[in-house]
Every structure is written in C-alpha cells, then in structure tokens.
Amino acid sequence: MQYVNLDAQVGDLSGVLDPAGYLSHLPSISGDLPPGARAFATDTDHYDFLSRRCVKDLTLRAVRGAGGEEMAVEFQHNCWKHERDLLIRYAGVSSFIIDPADEDRGTDLGTVVLDEILPHRDGCSHEIACWDSTLTIVCRDLKATWTETICSARRRRDRS
C-alpha cells in the first residue's frame, strides 16, 4: 500500500490500521480515477470502520474470470458488522496478482484488512490487503455493488 498504513503507531500502540494518509491524498487523485473506481473509493462509508459498507472484515469468497479481461471478486459479509456482500466487477483487466502466491490456498486469503485504489496508466489499480495475502488488480475500471444477504433480509423482517 502506498498511502494506507497497515502498521501505524498511535502513542504506545502499534499495528493500528490508518487510512488517513490515503484519505487526505484521495481528493487530489480522485479526478484521475475512472468513474466506477472513483465512486467506490470516495464513498464516505468505505473507510469508516463503524459503517456497514466498510471493506474491513469482509472475507474473500470467490474470484471469477482470473486471467481474463473481465473479472469479478466476491466478498462475504460478517453478520456482526455487515448487512450485505460486496461484488466488484473489473473491466479491462491488465494485471492480476496474489502476493504471496500459493496455489494450494486458492481464494483463502484471510479477512480483508483494507484496500487502496490509485490511478494507473491502464485505468486504476486496486490493492486489497488481507491478513494472509494481498490481491492487486489493474483494470480500465471497476464497479462495486453491495448485494443483499440472508442476514440483511432477516434483520429487515425482524424489525417489522
């Protein structure tokens, strides 16, 4: 990650997740991001750890179309925090890297820590840090969609 700090120091506490550097840099680069990437990166809930639409604590469920020009990455919610799953569709994919690579692991990269979307000559780069690995996709643009889950339908029904 270039701007998101995954190991910040706050007083005597180390290992703190801090997106502040990215959030302060985002206004100067958001105009250089493709429209879908810009909408996702600048969503006020994206880096709000208390928000139900924060990427932190999602779990990577599937990667579809890896190696192709069109890809989809599905993230599963945590019922204690999120009410929806996240689906990100990538168009014009020019690079897809899992680091460290481990073919036996598949998509089991651990829980999402944070992500960072930056302008790239091919459109944008989307780096997703998980506890066990990092997923980086370079593409022309992306579209992020939060989709309803059984948890959200049940909560809505229970509130009625």
Rank of each mutant, 00 (worst) to 15 (best):
L58R: 01
D158F: 02
F49I: 04
C130R: 02
N5P: 02
R38I: 03
R38P: 01
A153N: 13
A39D: 11
I88A: 03
D104K: 13
P34M: 02
R156T: 09
H77A: 07
I137S: 02
P35K: 10
V63R: 14
R157A: 11
T111I: 11
C54V: 05
R52W: 01
A101Q: 09
L114F: 09
D57K: 06
G15A: 03
V4A: 03
H126G: 01
I117T: 14
L135I: 12
D108N: 12
C54N: 12
T42K: 02
C151W: 12
V112H: 01
R156K: 13
L58P: 02
I150H: 13
P27H: 10
A144C: 11
L114S: 15
R89F: 00
G110T: 04
E127S: 13
F75Y: 15
L114T: 02
F75H: 12
L142Q: 10
S30Y: 01
H120Y: 04
D45T: 09
N5A: 09
R154C: 06
T147M: 10
R89D: 12
R84A: 10
C151T: 15
V112C: 05
I98N: 04
D57Y: 10
L23I: 07
D32H: 10
S30C: 14
K56P: 00
W80Q: 08
E116S: 07
Q9G: 00
R61M: 10
D18S: 14
G65S: 10
R89K: 13
P19G: 10
A129V: 11
I88R: 02
D122C: 09
L60F: 03
A72I: 15
C139L: 06
H77V: 00
L109F: 08
V55H: 01
C124S: 07
R64S: 08
R154E: 14
P27G: 13
P35Y: 00
H126A: 03
R140S: 15
R140D: 15
G36Y: 06
M1S: 14
E83W: 09
C79T: 10
V113L: 13
D132I: 00
V138T: 15
G36T: 08
W131K: 07
